[in-house]
């Protein structure tokens, strides 16, 4: 009986957490569409998420593209298919690696920062202070971050796609001896509009999840520095898991026959 009770308790806790997240999400999203719009705060978050994440996302994309070209070349050389390297690089980057790696890097950088900032505001009563100053914390703190995450990650992924493909080009041309014009034409030849669009849709969803998890865990953090630390960890882990699960679902939506 004790064992069954433990399972029941865990299930109830899971249901409670799911319900709380669903309520938080619906409230947060509804505030994105209702005035007042805090344009200054949205702009600041966009700079934080977009501009300041550029170096880390760019570096990740560059080296991923380079490794991809190297790996696919050595692999495909076994059955004389080296000509497919450019196509493999461009499709892998635009469809999968660009959005997923950018999402995970932003989850580590921005999701953690959001959870720590909002969590600290919670435990130092700054969120209560917002309420007493007749300002809705969901509208002031959460909505701008959700909007910025949703808008900026696709832009970051466009940059990551270009840098990733460029990384592959560098290795293919300067290390593996590909003809530059040939490599570029092969890159374009099999790339379809939907390959890029699917990556950008993923990026928008990932950006939303990263901001949502950062805000949710920060908003509900309790118990001082330890609580803020836990919130930060949970924000990164849950955003990463959501990114990987939703990546599969969106890929299925776009490309399953």
């Amino acid at each position: 009986m004790e064992f069954l009770a433990a399972i029941g308790r865990a299930f109830l806790v899971f249901l409670e957490a799911t319900g709380r997240l669903a309520l938080f999400t619906s409230r947060a999203v509804s505030h994105c569409f209702r005035p007042p719009v805090y344009a200054r705060l949205i702009g600041r978050q966009m700079i934080d998420i977009g501009y300041y994440s550029l170096p880390v996302v760019g570096l990740t994309a560059l080296f991923t593209g380079m490794v991809l070209a190297l790996q696919s070349y050595t692999g495909f050389a076994r059955f004389q298919a080296e000509g497919a390297v450019a196509t493999v690089v461009v499709l892998s980057i635009t469809r999968e690696l660009g959005p997923v790696l950018a999402g995970l890097m932003v989850a580590g950088r921005i999701g953690a920062a959001m959870a720590a900032e909002i969590g600290t505001m919670r435990v130092t009563e700054q969120i209560d202070a917002l309420t007493t100053l007749a300002t809705n914390p969901m509208k002031y703190l959460v909505a701008p971050r959700l909007i910025a995450g949703l808008c900026m990650l696709p832009l970051l992924v466009v940059v990551a796609d270009i840098i990733g493909v460029f990384g592959g080009f560098l290795v293919a041309v300067y290390k593996l001896g590909f003809n530059p014009a040939n490599y570029l034409s092969k890159s374009w030849e099999y790339l379809q509009f939907m390959d890029v669009v699917s990556g950008l849709v993923k990026a928008g969803v990932f950006g939303f999840f990263v901001s949502l998890m950062g805000c949710y865990h920060g908003y509900h953090s309790r118990g001082g520095a330890e609580g803020v630390g836990t919130a930060t960890t949970n924000a990164v882990v849950s955003a990463s898991i959501l990114i990987l699960i939703s990546n599969y679902l969106i890929t299925g939506m776009f490309f399953s026959k």
Binding site: E117, T120, T124, E125, Q126, D128, A129
Partner: peptide
Amino acid sequence: FQGSALFDS
């Protein structure tokens, strides 16, 4: 507020 709760940002 007890801890002042000033907005750091």
